[in-house]
Design a protein around this nucleic acid. Structure first.
Lengths: 196, 196
DNA sequence: GTCTATAATCCGATAGAC
DNA sequence: GTCTATCGGATTATAGAC
């Protein structure tokens, strides 16, 4: 296999295992076994575990950009686009209940490890935040677009964490509906600030 | 030192290190060093790492019950009691930005490890949920008390996760204010105190 | 590019002296 | 109850054959 193909295979497997098992709990042997190559061959492609993590984060950034573009292509209405985001927790419910949100759980783990890549991992949140803020701005909420974006992100993270801990499907559906309701309440030309 | 005192010392140190570094990343050597005893002596008090985890979770359950009682003693108004909970993320802001919410991050880690104690760890969430539901019931929201309780829990978890990832203090303050505002919007008009 | 073999380290856990 | 010494296994990482 070519070097780039093998490298891509490693990143793909590592991406999934880091999500399912966590970064530290995933060993080189785990990745090598599922990627179908020996441990020794690993160091030809990645000299250290940190390097794989950076490649996985870069891949997630690229995947996220692709997903955001597909939501833009799928709906011209900014409100519908924001709903596309809010409904991830339902579409990926089974995975989230088993392993949480890939972004939130990785940031939490890297924070505890005091790993320098925490900021890189949080970059996926920044991608979502800025994209959501664009949609809110398009809805006429330019002034507090970023605050509204972070509010939606916050709720999706809270839902994911409690879904993992408690495994309550009704709770997930109910809270996603509450986001939909909240979104519509933001719609009217009335400029209602989030705070105060 | 007596056995129970040493055991308590181990649990206290393990509690803090599990929070700061994570469960798996904390070794027996780490705990032993900070508790001031040898690795070998460990197994007199805890025969396995799982046993320490269970003791830590039991200690957190007890601490949480104590905290809930102190909030009950500190305020007779259920709304004020709920605010006591919502404001944890501000009181513990520095720790949360560094290591996340102790309950949420532990549940996430145990979920990825497929560790049987995940349900026990989630028991702290259940304590908070039931206590919050009691307060909402006392405010006249008996019918949806549990859903309201989970909503508050969800928001505090979302705030904690984003605070850890992004380190934005303004975001934390703004979202706690938004919870306060939401709380007042939940009050049935009849139970609202007369202004004078 | 891929492999085997192995070094060096750390882990959880045990045995036994005191 | 506390200690030292140590086992067996897993881990990251390297060296070198092919």
């Amino acid at each position: 296999m070519s070097a780039s193909a093998t490298r891509g295979q490693i990143v793909s497997v590592a991406d999934r295992l880091f999500y399912e098992q966590g970064y530290e709990a995933t060993s080189f042997a785990d990745i090598a076994a599922e990627a179908g190559l020996s441990r020794g061959n690993f160091y030809y492609h990645f000299k250290a575990k940190d390097a794989i993590l950076e490649a996985v984060i870069a891949a997630r950034m690229a995947d996220t950009r692709t997903m955001l573009e597909s939501w833009e292509d799928g709906a011209s209405d900014p409100l519908e686009r924001i709903r596309s985001f809010a409904h991830i927790v339902i579409r990926n419910q089974a995975k989230i209940m088993a392993h949480g949100c890939p972004v939130g759980t990785l940031c939490n783990e890297l924070a505890k490890l005091e790993h320098g890549a925490k900021g890189d991992a949080a970059g996926v949140f920044v991608l979502f935040r800025d994209w959501l803020a664009e949609q809110f701005a398009a809805l006429g909420r330019e002034r507090d677009a970023e605050a509204l974006a972070l509010h939606v992100l916050m709720r999706s993270q809270g839902i994911a964490t409690l879904a993992t801990a408690l495994g309550d499907e009704d709770f997930v559906r109910r809270e996603v509906r509450a986001i939909d309701q909240w979104l519509e309440d933001q719609l009217p030309a009335v400029t209602r600030p989030l705070q105060e």
